[in-house]
Design a binder for these strands. Sequence first.
DNA 1: CTCCATGTTCAATACATATTGAACTATTGG
DNA 2: CCAATAGTTCAATATGTATTGAACATGGAG
Lengths: 135, 135
Amino acid sequence: MARALAHPTRDQIVLPTVLDCLSDPTRLAIVCSLAGHDQAATDLRCGDFAGFSGKSNLAYHFARLREAGLISTRVQGTTRYMTLRRDDLDTRFPGLLDSVIKSAMSDMEPWMPVGCRLVCESADQLEARPGFEPG
Amino acid sequence: MARALAHPTRDQIVLPTVLDCLSDPTRLAIVCSLAGHDQAATDLRCGDFAGFSGKSNLAYHFARLREAGLISTRVQGTTRYMTLRRDDLDTRFPGLLDSVIKSAMSDMEPWMPVGCRLVCESADQLEARPGFEPG
DNA sequence: CTCCATGTTCAATACATATTGAACTATTGG
DNA sequence: CCAATAGTTCAATATGTATTGAACATGGAG
């Protein structure tokens, strides 16, 4: 069921909700990972963030990010691929996402959840994915 | 007592805390008011935000803003004058404050607490202040 | 000194949040 | 069909948050 998940429209995205989403260290790290992955060949799956927290906790955070309009989730089989809604966010709040990500990247150490570097600093695990073929 | 309130150092300011502060509609409105008041002759007092909420609730929000490093509070007699820590924030998180404020200003209506326009849209009350003298 | 205004502190409340583990629902592959 | 995989949903918990009103502290004005 629920083949297509509910996403807010561009103009349903509201600033306080977005900021609240970004204020959580785990979610901020997720967003940074997605941003750093922007031009890669594949989107990231839930499982790629296994180092961040437990599965059920990740599902919770992904739902919050999706409902706030920060990410879009594409369902494909049993896996879900996530993308940052860059265009929508840049249109709605110009410059916001860039400055947040840049600020976050410059000093993550104090607040970043353990295991984030797995996704942030390398794409090695991508090649380790079953069925992965480089572009 | 407590002639000088505790303020965090510039490098003690952390991104998630700042975002969390800005994610509350009341605090976001306060910050916007302070930003819009930047080049005026006087700083804003607690009482200038009376329309936002009750006194004790405002004290709570101002403490949060101060402890997060967003505003600095100068005590003078029984009144407290507030300023945005623009330089510190711009140094620490370049572009962040501007984009947040610009985004907030562009569509406040949906989330802004009642009474905000009192401070945002006019400076009439400044002249109504006891002892106010225009520059 | 006494009144008044400004703002804080405290206790109580109602509510939201992040995190956990266990149970459940698909979907894929042998 | 069977087993494994990916991820959700639910219930429980612990903790943080915003908001309120009443009581308190402090400084200025008559």
